[in-house]
Computed example of a mutant assay.
Amino acid sequence: MTVSITRRLLLGAAMALGLAGAAAAEYPERPITLVIPFAAGGSTDVVGRIVADRMSQELGQQVIVQNVGGAGGSLGAGQVAKADPDGYTILMATVATHALNPLILKQKPYDPVADFAPISLLVLVPNVLAVNPELPVNSVQELIDLAKKEPLAYASSGNGTPLHLSGELFKAMAGIDVTHIPYKGSGPALTDVLGNQVPIIFDNLPSASSHIASGKLRALGVTTKERAPSFPDVPAIAETLPGYETYTWNALFAPAGTPPEVIERLSAAAKAAMADPAVAERMKDFSATIVASGPEELAEHVKAEMAKWEPVVRDANVSLD
């Protein structure tokens, strides 16, 4: 009797595993929704649409972009965290959704580690420190020297954004006190810096690049460890402040509990998409560096980013409701 029951249980388990394997092998059987947790038009949206289009070809099913803006990316990320873990709802995440918001928000809408299954770290996008040309500085060191002599202010796209915290990290490492002026987005911030209402800005390099190229802004340094290929004459801030490094990044996540076979299928499709020369050329347009990692590397990246930003957020006393 015991042998019969045991045999039945083993057969049932084997059948369940077989069905699960078959389901994973057939994935995807219908369109996939890629949630972009910001409004259309920004760099994350652009990256997402390029990747979604190419992944659609790899997967044989359409990857449909859905913009769910609000709460600095937390609204869309929270929606994906609660979605069915079947591989049909995935997230285009950033440093904001998976490092900064969890540290800054008083009410935590999700856990960036426990509530998500990593798929692939796609690209790194530099930020840039730039000034209005009327400010009498031509280098990072000259800006630091000036800030030690007279009060200055810098603009960013808003409180708690990666650009705000890029400025706070710069201040801490340079030993200077510069007033932060938050705006509701990069557009208004750029407008006031171009008009010299505020002399300094931390911005995404893609957003500021046309103004730098035209001479309306003077780029003092990019925030990545090395110079950006699109502006090779602009030094890295790290050349003056060793160890300084910030950037925006884009990565794909699924809800926690998504089958490993499905994660591997999505990760392989993402890597294939990023290896396409046409995609690589598009990424160059806004100085994005392609990474195309596996799930394990992305998981380690998130932990490292949270560890890096936690003291910056704490020391700057940044918190949002």
Rank of each mutant, 00 (worst) to 15 (best):
I50G: 01
S120T: 10
L220P: 02
V113G: 10
E281F: 08
L220I: 06
K308E: 00
V80W: 13
V65Y: 14
P311N: 02
Y183L: 03
M92Q: 15
E168A: 11
L217K: 01
D321Y: 12
F253G: 00
P206I: 08
N67S: 05
P162L: 14
L75W: 10
L103Y: 02
V113Q: 11
L103F: 05
L194W: 03
L11F: 09
P182G: 09
A189I: 08
A236M: 04
A14F: 14
S43V: 14
P311G: 03
V198T: 02
V291W: 03
S166G: 12
P109C: 12
E26C: 14
L91P: 02
K82G: 15
I263Q: 14
V51W: 07
F116S: 08
P28G: 01
G70D: 04
E150D: 11
G21Y: 12
A189H: 02
V51H: 09
A20S: 12
L298Q: 03
L105N: 02
L320G: 02
V312I: 12
A238L: 12
K308L: 11
A174E: 02
Y247F: 08
S120Y: 07
G167L: 11
P188A: 09
A39G: 05
V222P: 04
P277D: 12
S56P: 07
K149Y: 04
S209L: 13
V65D: 08
A270P: 03
A278D: 09
H98E: 13
A254H: 00
E134Q: 12
V131A: 01
S267P: 00
V312R: 07
A114L: 12
P199D: 00
F286H: 09
I32D: 05
K148A: 07
V302E: 00
T6K: 13
N127W: 05
P199A: 09
Y88E: 02
V137L: 07
P182R: 06
R8V: 08
P255E: 06
Q197D: 11
V313H: 05
I36K: 08
V80G: 11
E134K: 06
L143N: 01
A13N: 14
N196C: 00
V198H: 03
Y183I: 05
V128G: 02
G215K: 04
P112D: 10
E281K: 10
T89R: 12
H164R: 04
L190V: 03
L34Q: 00
A299W: 01
E310L: 14
L241C: 06
R7P: 10
A99Y: 05
S74A: 08
Q197M: 12
S139A: 03
M15P: 04
A153G: 08
I181H: 13
D111V: 13
L194H: 05
E168N: 10
T248R: 13
D111H: 14
S139Y: 07
L75K: 09
A81R: 01
M274V: 10
A71T: 15
T6V: 15
N67D: 15
L298T: 00
T44C: 14
V318Q: 14
D203S: 12
F116R: 04
